[in-house]
Structure formats: structure tokens, C-alpha cells
């Protein structure tokens, strides 16, 4: 088992090993839903929630069902199934209790299912030998890091609406460039902690 302290995992997964800027996972919804801060916060919280919950569930499934039976090799498919089911659950929950958020996220909510950041966190958890608490905190940190990244991007894109972007770079191209610059900025954190 890894002995990394919880606080280190939390800070590390938000800043030094940010799931978007260090691992470049979860890019599709990051690019699609980052045009308004409000929506970005909504999707970010949904991702964080799903990430914490699925990492915890996947930890239990992996260590209490798959490892004892020696079936680690089916972990991918099981992780994906757990994530998909959980997203369905969240979708129904949000539709019932927060129609506003449901309308704002619209078709993007199902995007969480295929958000590789979420599968990525579950797989990192296995790779890095975290225990249950560490995994959950790692999931939380991963989600918060993703939310931070998409909020930064949404803020920049709201401002970029007023700037004169050269025509060939309009749309996805400039977002890629900005993501790259942000990733370089996040590299500044890398000396502090390393997961």
C-alpha cells in the first residue's frame, strides 16, 4: 500500500498532477462545455461527485471482488459499467431535484459516462496502490482539479469572446493552444509534490 499522506494526495491531484493539465484526460467535455463559467461549474461538480463515488465503489469492487478471484484483467470493463450506471443514476437524480441544472447541462450529462478522466482516476488508484481513504481523496482531488481546469478555461473563453482571434485559430484550435499554455503554468507546481 502507498503511504502518501491524504493532504499530499489531495493537493497533488489538484495542482501538480492535474488530470487535465498533466495527464490530458477528459478533454472532450473539457473542450465542449467550457464556454460559460456557470455550466462549467455545474459539469465540474457533477464530474467531481461521480469521480469520488465511482472511485470508492470501484475500489471496493476491485479489492473485494476482482482481486480475491484473480480477475484483475476484467477491471476495465467493470469500472466502465460502474461509471455508466452511476452516471445514469446521477442523471435521474439531477432531473428530479434540479431541473435548472438539468437544462443547463442538457446533452452533456451523458458525456460524463465517456469522460476518460473518471476511468483514468479509477485506473491510477489501482496503479498507485492507494487504500480506500486515499482512493476517495484522490477521486475528490481529481474531480476538483478537473473542475478548476474547466472553470479556468471557461473564464478565459468568456474573456476571449472580446478578443480578436486570428481566423484559422478560431474555435477548437485556440482552446488547444490555451490548454497548452495553462498546462505549462501548472508545470510550475510540479516541484512542490509529486504523486
Amino acid at each position: 500500500m502507498s503511504s502518501t499522506p491524504l493532504l499530499v494526495i489531495l493537493v497533488g491531484s489538484i495542482f501538480t498532477n492535474n488530470i487535465i493539465f498533466a495527464s490530458f484526460l477528459g478533454m472532450c467535455s473539457f473542450m465542449a462545455v467550457s464556454d460559460k463559467i456557470d455550466t462549467a461549474i455545474g459539469l465540474g461538480s457533477a464530474v467531481t461527485f461521480v469521480m469520488v463515488a465511482t472511485t470508492a465503489i470501484n475500489y471496493l469492487v476491485y479489492h473485494y471482488i476482482l482481486v480475491p478471484l484473480g480477475l484483475e484483467f476484467i477491471s476495465y470493463i467493470i469500472f466502465i459499467a460502474v461509471i455508466a450506471a452511476f452516471v445514469q443514476f446521477v442523471e435521474m437524480f439531477v432531473e428530479r431535484f434540479s431541473p435548472g441544472l438539468y437544462i443547463a447541462l442538457g446533452i452533456f450529462l451523458p458525456l460524463i459516462t465517456v469522460n476518460c478522466a473518471i476511468l483514468g482516476v479509477s485506473l491510477f488508484m489501482v496503479l498507485r496502490n492507494y487504500n480506500f481513504l486515499q482512493s476517495t481523496v484522490f477521486g475528490l482531488g481529481g474531480g476538483l482539479g478537473w473542475t478548476l481546469a474547466i472553470m479556468l478555461m471557461a473564464g478565459l473563453r468568456e474573456k476571449m469572446g472580446y478578443s480578436n482571434v486570428p481566423r484559422p485559430l478560431k474555435g477548437a484550435a485556440v482552446i488547444m493552444l490555451v490548454t497548452g499554455v495553462l498546462a505549462m503554468a501548472f508545470m510550475g507546481f510540479s516541484g512542490i509534490i509529486n504523486l
Partner: peptide, 21 residues
């Protein structure tokens, strides 16, 4: 194991759907 986990997840979703809707 894959099948039983899938069935379990579907069952949870069905119950949730019944309750939420």
C-alpha cells in the same frame, strides 16, 4: 462475475428510476 455485476447495476438503476420518476 461480469454478468452478475451488470445485473446488479441494472437492478439498482431500475429501482432508482421507479423512485425518482
Amino acid at each position: 462475475i461480469t454478468t452478475s455485476i451488470f445485473i446488479l447495476l441494472s437492478a439498482i438503476l431500475l429501482v432508482a428510476e421507479k423512485y425518482f420518476t
